[in-house]
Design a protein around this nucleic acid. Structure first.
Lengths: 109, 109
DNA sequence: AAATAACATCGTAATATTGCGATACAAAAA
DNA sequence: TTTTTGTATCGCAATATTACGATGTTATTT
């Protein structure tokens, strides 16, 4: 096959997996770090900063945008990408809740 | 192409991406939730609980194990999988640090 | 209006992931 | 020792991801 069986999982499980997947690439982590540290970043800067082609960066930005993690507003000739606060908080909370499930080592292993 | 250029990123970026990727699948999230809630889980239970074939579950368990997120100890006939506390804490801290980078909306968008 | 600048999209090649049936394997039970 | 039980691994087909050159697109300059 090759396609995930989303229908057998809960909405929360699918949503969290999708958001994590969007972040689960070193280039996209680097992009997010850049966007956050620059506090408003445009694609051109990222191409210079990271060592990837413009087309590749643009594609990664698209994935982050599709996942709702970032948002882009046109600013003259260039595009200003920044964090989508709502999704960021949502993901932070979802992940936080997930990690809090674990109460430490069990008595079995 | 088709292979990630890990050499142009930092060790931290690659490590975080790899751990996130290991979690970025609804089945693996469901598996982790099961392992945590059962506080020691074996593969057989998971096959009944989730709607995936035994071979598929075993493969997902292998990925979580390779990433260091879970560990398995042989317990008689079956295998007892549980959370690897060290990796769990590491990931929790890495993610926490990452999310704390963001200080709220910038003044640009 | 033509040229430029900054991104986006298309098309493609290489590789990775997902899922599962079939089969192998190792430990315990019969 | 044979059988059973619980997992792991193999091999395959379908699909997804990654990267990038080439080409579009859109808004600003000139």
């Amino acid at each position: 096959m090759g396609l995930t069986k989303t229908e057998i999982f809960t909405t929360e499980q699918n949503q969290l997996a999708q958001l994590l997947k969007a972040m689960a690439h070193p280039a996209r982590i680097a992009i997010l770090e850049q966007i956050i540290s620059a506090n408003a970043c445009i694609c051109g800067d990222l191409v210079e900063e990271l060592g990837l082609a413009q087309a590749t960066i643009s594609q990664h930005l698209k994935e982050l945008k599709n996942a709702g993690i970032i948002q882009g507003t046109i600013e003259g000739v260039s595009v200003c990408y920044c964090i989508n606060p709502a999704t960021w908080r949502l993901l932070e909370n979802q992940i936080g809740a997930f990690f809090k499930l674990y109460k430490g080592p069990a008595n079995c292993c």
